[in-house]
């Protein structure tokens, strides 16, 4: 009895701890500031879209939104492409090279990507890659390659050797085997990894903060940070901006829950 009660109370508390702040944000995006401060959890007096209109009008969220989409989509695409190629090679190579490559990329797992901010910054200044979406994409690819290769290698290793050999007999090259056998088989793993990478790229702050200063190149997390900048603004606008920034993730989460959970936990389990 006691166990059951404790269990239910604890479970409810944590569920509320997640739901209450989320509701405050969602409801707040329809409210005026005064309402947010006094009754954060009440339904808005009227479901007004003024905040969204204001945000579009003044905050210019379209550009950062577009930038975030460009950076995330290209980063994920190229990381998956490069990582799957490398992972396939590693999983198929029984030679020393395979081992060496694997250890090389494992090094990247041990060193947090954040420690490279200074050399990356100076390198990018030299290459004129600051204030460039391409620069952000390159950094994202480099930072997420190790973990992606790690996840995908373990997946490719699980593909039974016979499946490759069937194709190999026909004299197919590696690239063809990769394309016609490994790639189709690995679709679920690629999807999960892709989501995992998308969340990382979509939400990253540190590198954009350092590399992007130009208004028209800012990504969403940077724009959110600007909201709390030297020239202050209001919580109603802030919550509205948070809503806009989170919508793609929430939609993807609802639509592809399983892949999502698989992706975000694969990163942990494999890494």
């Amino acid at each position: 009895m006691f166990y059951k009660w404790t269990k239910n109370i604890l479970l409810t508390t944590f569920a509320l701890a997640v739901l209450v702040p989320s509701s405050i944000v969602v409801l707040g995006s329809f409210k005026k500031d005064v309402e947010i401060y006094t009754k954060p959890l009440a339904l808005p007096k009227s479901w007004s879209l003024d905040n969204f209109r204001n945000l579009i009008h003044t905050g210019n969220v379209f550009t950062p939104f577009k930038n975030s989409v460009i950076v995330a989509v290209f980063s994920v695409f190229f990381t998956l492409l490069f990582a799957s190629l490398a992972a396939y090679a590693i999983s198929r190579m029984t030679t020393v090279t395979g081992r060496v490559l694997f250890i090389l990329f494992s090094l990247g797992l041990a060193i947090p990507g954040q420690v490279n901010i200074i050399p990356i910054y100076h390198l990018f200044v030299k290459l004129h890659l600051t204030n460039s979406l391409l620069g952000l994409i390159l950094v994202n690819i480099a930072l997420t390659l190790p973990i992606s290769i790690f996840i995908l290698t373990s997946f490719f290793k699980d593909i039974p050797r016979e499946m490759y050999e069937v194709a190999g007999i026909d004299g197919a090259g590696h690239l063809r085997i990769y394309r016609s056998i490994a790639l189709p088989l690995s679709r679920p793993a690629m999807g999960a990894t892709g989501i995992f990478l998308f969340v990382i790229c979509w939400n990253d702050l540190l590198y954009p903060l350092m590399l992007i200063t130009q208004l028209d190149k800012k990504t969403l997390p940077l724009t959110l940070i600007d909201f709390r900048g030297e020239f202050a603004t209001s919580y109603s606008m802030l919550f509205t901006a948070i809503m806009v920034a989170s919508i793609p993730m929430v939609v993807m989460y609802i639509a592809m829950q399983r892949t999502f959970v698989a992706g975000l936990t694969a990163g942990a389990v494999k890494g």
Binding site: Y37, A232, Y235, L238
Partner: peptide
């Protein structure tokens, strides 16, 4: 006391 709250208090 942040600079989001301060102008809000002043404005209210």
């Amino acid at each position: 006391y942040t600079d989001v709250v301060a102008p809000a208090d002043f404005a209210a």
